[in-house]
Amino acid sequence: MSTATIADIARHAGVGTATVDRVLNKRPGVNAETVQKVMQVVEKLGTPPPRGRPRKVENARFAFVLPSESTPFVELLDRQIAQAAGEFRHQHITEVTHRLPGEDPAQFAAALAQFADSDAVAVMAPDLPPVKLAINELVRTGVHVVTLFSDVAGSMRETCIGADNRAAGRTAGLLLGRMAVPGRDTLLLASQATRLSGEIERRIGFAQVVEERFPKLKVLRTPDLPSADAGATRALLRFLRGSGVDLARVAGLYNVGSGGAGVARAIESLGLTGTVPVIVHDLTDEHRSLLAAGGLAYVLHQDIHYCISTAARVLRALCENVRGALNVVQPRIEILTAENLH
């Protein structure tokens, strides 16, 4: 086991100990070249032990649990976890990603219960009683559990890592309400038959802010759309063409979950791109292209890498009984436009 100290790393890297501390704790204020230099020395000498507290375990076994549904956001999340593998190794974490069937809560809960031999679990799960009970049983057996991006209310999980979803929905409502032009008084709210509490919270926040701040506007909820983009396009077009919706009065559309590219294509098929602004979540590759091309007005995004890293850091601290392990800064909602893409 490495006995390197922060002072050793600083001496080999030719920087101060404060700089090393900033790099190791991922705090801002260090340029990329210096970060790379410090991390190269860390690769050679090893990560110093935490100050003031020996590690409880040399290697911790973490399970990242995601729905098996192949949506662009879940696939993006899966890739981000894989890309963080090197970062996890520096924290002495062995992580495995599992995909469980989110459409079957009983099966999801039964599979989740099998992770009792893990030290910790970070899970994105449907908010349903069987899942809540499975989380509670894991916690009772000594497994630390946090939820990712969408919470499971009333469970014994130790915290939820992710942006405030109700605030995200309110942000979408505020943006579309301000963009509404005279004569267009209907805002479309599109979603799937979701069991994720995060998406439900977005719907609530959207409806709240429209009612509070834009009383002349009305919210029209679409039927539940398929999660796949192609299916979402077909279902939304079928609804808009066959339900008597006056397209001349539609002021905007907010899609709370998956299928965002699909709803944007439906609006394009109706010749309403630019006239009916569309807001979706998560900067996937397709959303980036649509945003740049004008097919989307805004993408609401949160720093996924930060959330994954924070979940791992919190769980590692909980495994070591570190005081204040749950004192974390949750990510903010970013409002992305074609002008601020990077």
Rank of each mutant, 00 (worst) to 15 (best):
A63C: 04
G16S: 13
H301A: 10
R22G: 07
G324E: 10
D119M: 07
R241L: 07
E58R: 08
L176Q: 00
R99E: 08
V65W: 00
T141N: 14
L253N: 06
L225M: 09
A207F: 09
T5D: 06
G294I: 12
C160F: 11
T284M: 00
N25V: 11
A32S: 15
V65D: 01
L174T: 14
V15K: 04
G295C: 10
G324Q: 10
L315T: 01
S68W: 06
D285R: 14
T194E: 04
I333N: 01
G252C: 05
V30Q: 04
V121N: 01
P130V: 11
D78C: 14
A230E: 13
R241K: 11
Q192Y: 06
A122M: 08
H281R: 12
Q40S: 15
I333L: 05
N327F: 15
K44L: 11
E103W: 10
D151C: 07
I93A: 00
L187F: 08
L240T: 01
E211V: 12
A338C: 09
V219L: 13
T284F: 00
I161A: 05
L133K: 11
R89G: 11
E334D: 10
R238M: 12
V329G: 12
P101W: 00
A85D: 13
G274I: 13
T159V: 12
V245R: 03
G244H: 10
F149I: 08
A172C: 03
G46T: 12
P50I: 07
R288L: 12
P48A: 07
F64L: 03
T3S: 15
I81M: 02
V209C: 05
P277L: 11
E69H: 14
N327D: 15
A153T: 13
V210H: 03
V280L: 03
P50Y: 06
V181N: 08
E95I: 13
Y254E: 05
T3E: 15
M156C: 12
R213P: 06
P277W: 06
V57A: 14
A116K: 14
P129M: 09
K56E: 15
G52L: 09
E268T: 14
L77M: 08
S227C: 15
L247R: 02
P54D: 10
L236Y: 03
L148E: 01
R213H: 11
R157V: 04
N136Y: 02
N31E: 11
H342E: 15
I304P: 00
R195E: 11
L225G: 02
A338R: 07
G257I: 05
H144P: 01
D246M: 09
V121I: 08
G274S: 12
A261L: 09
T222E: 02
V322F: 02
L270F: 05
L237W: 05
E339G: 14
G177H: 06
A297V: 08
F88T: 01
T47P: 07
R332Q: 15
E75M: 11
I204Y: 07
A228Y: 09
D185T: 13
G16K: 08
A266W: 01
A297E: 06
G295K: 04
E158I: 08
R89C: 11
N165D: 03
L148C: 04
G231Y: 02
P126Y: 03
Q36D: 12
Q80E: 04
N321F: 13
